[in-house]
């Protein structure tokens, strides 16, 4: 069905090598200026790169040694967690019933937990070394990052 719609397009551009109307007039039919379209597209690509790759969300600093993380609507909130302690309890509350959100994995820490629905579930992280730890759902669509900073004073 879709193909049918474009048959005339195709004939005009690909088949009729020497069209009675020149290509420029066909483009004019689009009513969208090529320069405008191309610059918009370029800006869009630039925006995608900047927005999704270069800018990162502000991280949330852990004040006490427990932090509540909601699993809801496609994101962990907060999804960037910053701490400078070696021990941290993350209280996950999963409010998304879709199967994607069922597990939370901290691959580098070897932690893989199943989250119950609408019930708090605590994950205790001990002996955290400074570094960045990604945590995701099974499919990597829910994404978060735990940032452990250097400690100013050695604990214990």
């Amino acid at each position: 069905m879709i193909n049918e719609h474009f048959e005339s397009d195709f004939n005009e551009i690909m088949v009729k090598k020497r069209p009675p109307r020149n290509v420029r007039s066909h483009k004019a039919n689009n009513m969208i200026h090529p320069i405008l379209f191309n610059s918009l597209a370029f800006l869009l690509i630039l925006f995608i790169i900047v927005w999704f790759w270069l800018i990162k969300d502000q991280s949330t600093k852990v004040k006490a040694n427990e932090m509540t993380v909601f699993v809801k609507d496609g994101v962990y909130s907060p999804h960037r967690i910053e701490t400078s302690q070696s021990k941290l309890v993350l209280k996950f509350i999963r409010q998304d019933a879709s199967p994607c959100s069922e597990y939370v994995l901290f691959d580098q820490l070897g932690i893989h937990e199943q989250l119950p629905l609408n019930k708090p579930y605590r994950i205790t992280l001990n002996d955290l070394k400074p570094g960045h730890y990604r945590f995701t759902c099974q499919m990597g669509m829910y994404q978060g990052e735990l940032i452990v900073n250097e400690r100013n004073h050695e604990q214990h």
């Binding site: 800018i55 969300d57 809801k72 609507d73 496609g74 994101v75 879709s98 994607c100 499919m139 994404q143």
Partner: peptide, 18 residues
């Protein structure tokens, strides 16, 4: 639910399936 979670992810500079 898909639009909501896509928007939510977008606000946090994340891109998902949604």
């Amino acid at each position: 639910h898909l639009y909501h979670s896509a928007w939510n992810a977008f606000r946090h500079h994340l891109a998902t399936m949604d």
